[in-house]
């Protein structure tokens, strides 16, 4: 099972085993990792699951497009590696990936 590492804004590190096919957001919710709110439950409607993806893994995760990309233009502190974690479906290749959680989801 791929291991995903979450680092919050104050540097706190959490690791979670996430089933292949689940999302990076699910991994945070299922392990009560703070800072990812997921108000819409993962249907790309709220942008409260914003994370920064470790650049090394961007070829694996891909980049945002469509609705997700539009939403990301208006989140707090968007960066090139910003993603909505509900749109990153975990694969074996993501084992060891780190995502950073922004200071605020609003």
């Amino acid at each position: 099972m791929p291991l995903i590492k979450y680092i919050d804004h104050s540097g706190g590190e959490y690791e979670a085993d996430v089933d292949v096919g689940k999302t990076v957001m699910d991994g945070a919710m299922d392990n009560m990792i703070d800072g990812i709110l997921a108000e819409c439950g993962g249907c790309c409607s709220c942008a409260t699951c914003h994370v920064y993806v470790d650049e090394k893994f961007i070829p694996v995760t891909g980049t945002a497009d469509g609705m997700e990309k539009e939403m990301l233009t208006a989140v707090n502190e968007p960066k090139d590696n910003s993603r909505l974690s509900c749109q990153i479906f975990v694969t074996e290749e993501m084992d060891g990936m780190t995502v950073r959680i922004p200071e605020s989801q609003y």
Binding site: A47, M67, E70, M71, T73, A74, V75, Y106
Partner: peptide, 15 residues
Amino acid sequence: INRPKEFMITKQLLA
């Protein structure tokens, strides 16, 4: 309606 950016901005405008 299919305007995610305006939605995000409106939330901030209201706040």
